[in-house]
Design a protein around this nucleic acid. Sequence first.
DNA 1: TATTGTTATACTCTATAACTATA
DNA 2: TATAGTTATAGAGTATAACAATA
Lengths: 159, 159
Amino acid sequence: MKARAVSRKSSAKDSRVEVPPMATIIGYKLRRAQLFVFQDFLESFSKVKLRPAEFSVLAIIADRPGLKQSEIAESLGIKRANFVALMDSLERRGLAERRKAETDRRSHSVHLTPEGEKFVKKMTAIWAEHENRLIERLGGVAERDRLIDLLDRLLAPGE
Amino acid sequence: MKARAVSRKSSAKDSRVEVPPMATIIGYKLRRAQLFVFQDFLESFSKVKLRPAEFSVLAIIADRPGLKQSEIAESLGIKRANFVALMDSLERRGLAERRKAETDRRSHSVHLTPEGEKFVKKMTAIWAEHENRLIERLGGVAERDRLIDLLDRLLAPGE
DNA sequence: TATTGTTATACTCTATAACTATA
DNA sequence: TATAGTTATAGAGTATAACAATA
């Protein structure tokens, strides 16, 4: 693709320096949208005191119990050093637990506690309300799918 | 709209707790995409040592010279207290300057220096390369426009 | 020798309260 | 009394280096 995707037409109105309008800058709009969505998430989950990172960890554990700490951290793009405090917090709240892996006793496999399973059900219900609110703003599930598809194009080839 | 946008069909494969797949969660995908884009931005601008927030401030000043500090901060979603260090840095580098406003001497109107104008031209060229790289990933300008439109729907009604 | 989890640490971003100078 | 800019500070989030236990 050789065509100039970003044009620099002059408005010919004054002597100002030509700059891209913030409203059309991908990174800027992405950041603003992400902050908005996280804000809605935080308000939705304030009653159960759950942050986005904690939500994602619980969701992974629920879906694939037994994964090692470092596997969960890497799949979420979290440094394993920073994962420790996150995991400590979930364990202190009695939602998840570390178990020494039998095959490789250096590593910890991570599981939900029974209380954690109950919590995940409640959490999933709260999330559904939050997500449906976003889907409504987008104009429906089809638009949500289009958005996810476009974001995946940015992220591809690697997750 | 009353239809359930987020379904909870069971996979009927095992006894795991039902959770949303991370790959389809709007907030999660938004965050990953934003981090990726900022990463590309930081690499593109590493040679001129410019961060996304600094870029956005310079772009605003270039487009609308004379705005007050607090007006710029608010339009970018930055707290005015946090804007001070940002502005200090641009001023120390000789790219922008504060001028005591004549009408209201509490406020500072912000302008580019001559060197700042030269810098903005260079910065805009680097940005265009970066942005074109993203547009190519998305599949063209039309896809970029669709993405911006969807992100605006999330952000609407307020910016 | 390499890897997993861990600690310690530093740097950026963000949020709040309180000060100053002007209005 | 209220507002613009400022300072100080505290909390997240994130990045790196180094250590102990285990492989």
